[in-house]
Each structure stands twice: as structure tokens, then as C-alpha cells.
């Protein structure tokens, strides 16, 4: 499978995530779209890792090249999990105070 396909796929998913961030007002949905972006990144990382691995296999059958990409994905997941816990806590706190998760509602701070 040519790497471009994966790149296009992931960029598309990534951009959909961005569009979601830009078009939705619900903080939770926005946050979910960020998660979508992260997943696009993860997929691309794995694809690249396999690509590099494939290239390296040509020279050495026991090559472990490319594993760092997958490890990175692991760390992204770790970070994402941590972020989610903090993020949801913040959103809940916000909701507690304002009974809303609308980000357009966040406009006390401006100018």
C-alpha cells in the first residue's frame, strides 16, 4: 500500500478534526475532535513506522527499525488519557459553575 494513501487518509481525518474544532460549540465535542486529530496522528505514525520498517527489512531481516513510531503512539495514548482526565474535570467544573458547556459562552475574558 503506497504511503501516500495513509498520509492522505490521516491528513483528512486530521483536518476533519480541525474542522470539528472550528465548527462546534460544545466543549466536549470540541475536545472529542481533538482526540480525533490525535488518532489521525497515531495512525500516520504507525503507517510511517511500518514504512521505515519495510525499508529496513530489505537490509536486515531482524531489524527493529520503526518500532520507535509505535512506542510514540503508546506515549500519545498515555498523554491523551491524562489530558482527558484533566480536560473532563475542567469541563465538569465549568458546567458546575455555569450549567453550560458552550464555548461561545466563554467570553468574559476578551480584548
Amino acid at each position: 500500500m503506497p504511503i501516500q494513501y495513509y498520509i492522505y487518509l490521516c491528513l483528512t481525518l486530521f483536518s476533519i478534526g480541525i474542522i470539528g474544532v472550528l465548527t462546534r460549540r460544545n466543549a466536549i465535542i470540541v475536545f472529542m475532535c481533538v482526540e480525533l486529530m490525535l488518532n489521525a496522528v497515531n495512525l500516520l505514525l504507525v503507517a510511517f513506522s511500518k514504512m521505515h520498517h519495510g525499508v529496513a527489512l530489505g537490509s536486515s531481516a531482524t531489524s527493529m527499525v520503526g518500532i520507535e513510531g509505535q512506542i510514540f503512539v503508546f506515549f500519545i495514548m498515555v498523554v491523551a488519557a491524562a489530558e482527558v482526565s484533566v480536560g473532563l474535570a475542567i469541563i465538569v467544573m465549568m458546567y458546575r459553575n455555569t450549567h453550560s458547556v458552550d464555548i461561545n459562552f466563554l467570553n468574559r475574558l476578551k480584548n
Binding site: P2, I3, Q4, I7, G66, I67, I71, F74
Partner: peptide, 29 residues
């Protein structure tokens, strides 16, 4: 990406390759 010359003719290794296995990942990790 379309203009990226170094990505031409590169492909992703599908289904094979064992770097994604738990054993290898765990060892590296």
C-alpha cells in the same frame, strides 16, 4: 505531500513485520 519527492515509491508494509508485537514493543519500551 504530492510534491514530496522522497515519498514517491515508498510503501507501507502491510500485515507482516513484527515490530508491532507486544513482545518487541515491551522489550523496547
Amino acid at each position: 505531500v504530492r510534491q514530496a519527492t522522497d515519498m514517491q515509491n515508498k510503501s507501507v508494509l502491510m500485515k507482516t513485520g513484527d515490530i508491532g508485537l507486544i513482545k518487541n514493543l515491551g522489550k523496547a519500551l
